[in-house]
Design a binder for these strands. Structure first.
Lengths: 125, 125
DNA sequence: TGTCATTCAATGACGTGTCATATAAGTTGG
DNA sequence: CCAACTTATATGACACGTCATTGAATGACA
């Protein structure tokens, strides 16, 4: 039934959950109030900022986050409407989309990343 | 700007996210398909099962999970409607609620816990 | 080339979480 | 004992994520 190993697994799991929710919540609230974007939006910005060179990225980005394809699509839509990224269709495969930070997006990312890293440091100690 | 320490923090964070989503997703799908309850429902069942003695537990349970009070209330509502727990109002403080597993709840929890522990083991290795 | 399958992204219906608030019960100070 | 405050839970509006599906482009191959 409830072996000691089971208990230890459950403890470990709850600890992950706690860390995850505490950290995600803190970052989300901070970004929301200071920059009007949520954590998921920032995470996409961050991925785009990291890969300012590759092409046709929408798909590849999806592979680097636990987000669903559908979730990605909606987040990118919000970022686009907020004027932080722009979508360009790929020359060689017109199904794919190529993402780029706008100047506003780049500026916001620069600021927000500082906050983001600081809160990670504070919460993952 | 992006110090090595920053990068390491971000890596660590993404790793937590990945583990969290992979594990939660696996458990949620399994419980959903085999027992018709989601992960959050199970987690409340699990907490109630653990504390089969204390009184007025709704509040205390809230302190042992990152869930919001409002979320708790709704999850418990679903569990109640599904006939897995029952709510009894407290004699000494009629604002508080006292939760109890029903027989069905206890039986389901017993089965589901096995699945839950197995998936934790598989994912948190 | 014409069909059939596959891949990329977007969308609508839906469930569940959050915030703000409501309701009800308890507490405290005059 | 009554106002004002606090605490425990429930609820409604709303935001966001998921699943299933669609539309469009590509690929594979007879």
């Amino acid at each position: 039934m409830a072996t000691p190993q089971d208990r230890q697994l459950v403890e470990q799991w709850r600890s992950i959950q706690t860390t995850y929710f505490r950290t995600a919540g803190a970052i989300d609230r901070a970004l929301e109030s200071r920059f009007n974007i949520g954590l998921t939006e920032f995470e996409i910005l961050d991925l785009v900022a990291e890969s300012e060179d590759a092409a046709c990225r929408m798909k590849q980005l999806g592979e680097r986050t636990p987000m669903t394809q559908s979730a990605m699509s909606k987040v990118v839509d919000r970022l686009d409407k907020a004027g932080l990224v722009s979508r360009h269709s790929c020359e060689d495969d017109r199904r794919s989309l190529f993402l780029e930070l706008t100047d506003a997006g780049r500026a916001l990312h620069r600021e927000a990343a500082i906050e983001h890293r600081a809160l990670l440091k504070e919460n993952l100690a």
